[in-house]
């Protein structure tokens, strides 16, 4: 079974870049266009790992993590925060909100994939 990745980002460009990076290594890719959509897709898709942007309309990345961790889903699926800000403050906030890891945009495809492997232990 291929690793199933759900990416939540309001930027079409970033979603497409993620798609290429993720589908290139044979992972399954699903995406959502904002926080609310992301939380909805999560239950439909049942991903192995979630990548989320922070700055999004409707529900921001912190909200997404909070909803997934503490809402009805109560999931421990790894959640990677993808953000343009590299400030340590933001990382701490993400971690405190329940993020598993973080990456800074623009991302490198290989690095992204190895983070995904690292937090999921997915080897294939």
């Amino acid at each position: 079974m291929a690793l199933k990745v759900l990416a939540i980002d309001d930027s079409r460009t970033i979603r497409e870049l993620l798609r290429v990076a993720i589908e290139n290594v044979g992972f399954e890719y699903e995406c959502a266009v904002d926080g609310v959509d992301g939380v909805g897709k999560f239950s439909q898709v049942g991903p192995d790992v979630v990548i989320t942007d922070i700055n999004m309309p409707n529900l921001d990345g912190f909200g997404v993590i909070d909803e997934l961790r503490n809402g009805t889903a109560k999931t421990t699926v790894p959640i990677i925060v993808l953000t343009t800000e590299s400030s340590s403050d933001l990382k701490m906030r993400a971690r405190d909100a329940g993020a598993t890891g973080w990456m800074v945009k623009p991302f490198d495809d290989d690095a992204l994939v190895s983070v995904l492997r690292r937090v999921t232990g997915y080897q294939a």
């Binding site: 309001d10 460009t13 970033i14």
Partner: peptide, 19 residues
């Protein structure tokens, strides 16, 4: 203000990916 910020922010994010 948030919406305006996000628009600029998204442009920055995408532009970064293309250098």
């Amino acid at each position: 203000v948030n919406a305006v910020f996000r628009a600029v922010h998204s442009i920055k994010g995408g532009a970064g990916a293309f250098g």
